[in-house]
Design a protein around this nucleic acid. Structure first.
Length: 174
DNA sequence: GTCACCTTAGAAG
DNA sequence: CTTCTAAGGTGAC
């Protein structure tokens, strides 16, 4: 299955001490969450939602969960509950990587290599990096807890300072 | 088809 | 220590 059917997005803002995040929802759940300050990201992909009449009653409830989870995560606290996540437009490889990342506890880290090993594809180290970069739901899916080997910070698509800041809040020192 | 990417262990200089 | 290489998965061009 490729990307396709799942669109019909609804976007809701989440105001935090770090700025305004934008949460994108489909009828299946939270599909994307993006960092503040990137106005450019706002225009891509959900404009068609304005034409849709669909606005599942569940969305306000999901949004409440997302907001609570995001704020907790931003203070270095593990969210106790997450809204349903809609990963329908992604590959199974990516999903397995993200599922594995969700297991990383607050204050812990993994290397790309460790993650690759955990999903039974030890040679797909770089692919794991690619999956992290493709992660549509940063912070809640802790892609920032994935470091390169030997404690190196590695990279971060949305801005390396975010990665450092998030890690620092969880009490980590590089 | 080609290239660039949030990588890494190992071999060579 | 530094540099180079090979190997996965995916999306942009």
């Amino acid at each position: 299955m490729k990307k396709s059917s799942t669109q019909a997005l609804v976007v809701r803002p989440i105001v935090t001490t770090d700025g305004v995040f934008l949460a994108h929802y489909t009828e299946k759940g939270l599909a994307e969450l993006n960092f503040p300050g990137k106005g450019s990201e706002v225009g891509r992909g959900f404009s068609r939602a304005a034409n849709k009449k669909v606005f599942p009653a569940k969305i306000p409830a999901w949004h409440r969960l997302t907001e609570a989870a995001l704020k907790k995560a931003l203070t270095g606290h593990a969210p106790k509950k997450l809204p349903p996540l809609d990963w329908s437009g992604t590959t199974t490889f990516q999903q397995s990587v993200w599922r594995e990342m969700l297991k990383i506890a607050c204050g812990e880290t993994r290397s790309y290599g460790q993650l690759a090993t955990n999903i039974r594809k030890p040679a797909a180290v770089r692919a794991v990096g690619g999956a992290c970069g493709a992660n549509p739901i940063p912070v809640l899916v802790p892609c920032h807890r994935v470091l390169a080997a030997h404690g190196k910070i590695g990279g971060f698509g949305g801005g390396l300072d975010w990665k450092r800041r998030l890690l620092a809040r969880e009490g980590m020192v590089l």
